[in-house]
């Protein structure tokens, strides 16, 4: 997927949670949202981007992404 698109989506999520005065809550909100709504391949891709560069991500989003838990390996069908 286009990484610019994923970065934009992640920053948009960040924009919502940034209103939260307690930064820890904001970070947790972003992590939780991405964990619950993003397909693992999207999460892997943005984490890869974070490892490589990450400069286009908002600071609070970067912090949130670091808290993502890795998806479990796909069970065989």
């Amino acid at each position: 997927m286009h990484i610019e698109r994923l970065v934009k989506m992640a920053n948009d999520i960040g924009d919502f949670f940034k209103a939260e005065p307690n930064r820890e809550d904001a970070v947790r909100g972003i992590t939780h949202h991405i964990q619950r709504f993003w397909d693992p391949r999207m999460r892997e891709q943005i984490l890869e981007y974070l490892r490589q560069d990450g400069s286009d991500l908002d600071e609070v989003v970067r912090e949130a992404l670091r808290l993502l838990t890795a998806p479990e390996p796909r069970s065989a069908v």
Binding site: M1, H2, R5, R36, F37, W38, D39, P40, R41, M42, P71, E72, R74, S75
Partner: peptide, 22 residues
């Protein structure tokens, strides 16, 4: 059956993933 515990692709994500080859 055993079910997947991770969320899947939403429609716009499907399009992105299609263009991506996955």
């Amino acid at each position: 059956v055993t079910l997947e515990s991770e969320p899947g692709l939403r429609i716009p994500n499907m399009f992105e993933a299609a263009l991506d080859g996955s």
